[in-house]
Simulated scan of single mutants.
Amino acid sequence: MANSSKPAMAAMFSRSLASASRYLPRPPVAFPLWQNRTFRQFLSLILFFGIWQILCTIDFNVFINFTFVPSPLEVFGATVKFFAGDPMVHIKASVMRVLIGFGAATLLGVSCGVLIGWFKAIEDLVFLPLEILRPIPAVAWIPLAILMFATAEAGMIYITFIGAFFPILISTIKGVEGTDVLLLRVGQSLGAKQWDVFKEIVIPGALPSIASGLVIGMGNSWFCLVTAEILAGRYGIGYMTWESYVTSNYPPIVMGMLLIGLMGALSSLVVDRALTALMPWRVSNKG
């Protein structure tokens, strides 16, 4: 009885493995277009905006009130009006603030993270104060940014810097600390000096974690943009979004939110692709 059940169990295991694995050929499906990732992603956008439009049209008000939420068609109208004016003034101001803040956070976050992760003495000296500052939200830094910096522009860049710095710092520290001890011992047994071990083993081993921190940091910089541009300004997507809220002009609020989300997603994608090119040994398992 047990012997006769083994072939059946093996066949069932083989079928489940083929359907679950990202690498083995998948069984044929009734809807071939579903295998196309671009189609699935496009469909997700249609469903998102379609459900949103329906909820606004029927004035859905069960736990969440959509009565006063702008519909996608209203947001589209606000977007057309925005791009018919002078959109690059706002887009350029926001992009520059995010890029400068993110660039400074990358330099300082990666440098400090590597030193803290590699040298225990440096960790003991600087990590605890940084860990105390890390949970402070970006909006809480606004009064101090006003006091610390002579110009509002510098204060806004500082807020985007804060948003990116701590994810990059922590990811770098964890990446360096997570270096395989066996690889370190192999390098030392082969006569490698400390600098060679650091350059050839520690940094390449920490790169995936650093890359994750950079992608998250870029997203956080955009996340903090509205907070940063509350400080001052006449220009910027975050400032425009906040001004629309103050004047109760609701469609541009949602347009600004979606524009920040789109630019943040594109920026994170560019960072991710650039870092992936530096790590050719990484194999994607997305099917």
Rank of each mutant, 00 (worst) to 15 (best):
I46N: 11
A192E: 14
A211Q: 04
A93R: 02
W222Q: 01
P32H: 13
L278F: 15
L47M: 12
A104W: 00
P27G: 07
L73E: 08
A211Y: 04
G264L: 04
C56N: 11
I260M: 11
E74Y: 06
I168T: 08
G117S: 03
A192L: 15
V126L: 11
A11I: 11
A274T: 10
F13I: 15
V89D: 07
V110H: 03
P129H: 10
A277R: 14
V246L: 13
D272L: 12
G85K: 13
L269C: 04
V80A: 06
P25A: 08
F165Y: 11
F223V: 05
M279H: 09
L33I: 13
F66P: 00
C224F: 02
S189H: 10
W141I: 00
M88Q: 12
F166T: 04
F63Y: 11
A265I: 05
E123I: 08
M240A: 11
V126S: 09
G256A: 05
G191P: 10
I100K: 01
F63N: 08
T67W: 00
M96Y: 08
V202F: 04
A2W: 12
P135K: 09
T160K: 02
T227L: 04
A2Q: 15
V95C: 06
P208Y: 09
M96A: 09
M1I: 13
V95Y: 03
Y245L: 10
I168S: 01
T57R: 11
K92H: 14
S21C: 14
R37Y: 12
A10W: 07
P143G: 05
I168M: 13
P208D: 04
A206Q: 02
N36G: 07
I116F: 03
P7H: 12
L17G: 02
W34Q: 12
V95H: 03
L108M: 12
L207G: 03
S4W: 13
I132T: 09
A30D: 04
Q53G: 05
D196W: 12
G213Y: 01
L259E: 07
L133I: 12
I216Y: 00
G175S: 12
W281F: 15
P208S: 10
G77L: 14
N285A: 09
L262R: 02
A277K: 14
A78W: 00
D59N: 14
I157A: 04
D86F: 06
L147W: 05
G238A: 06
R40M: 13
F48P: 03
Q53W: 08
L266P: 01
W118S: 03
A18V: 11
Q35I: 08
M9C: 07
L24I: 09
G163D: 01
A18N: 15
V226Y: 04
L278P: 01
T38P: 05
H90C: 01
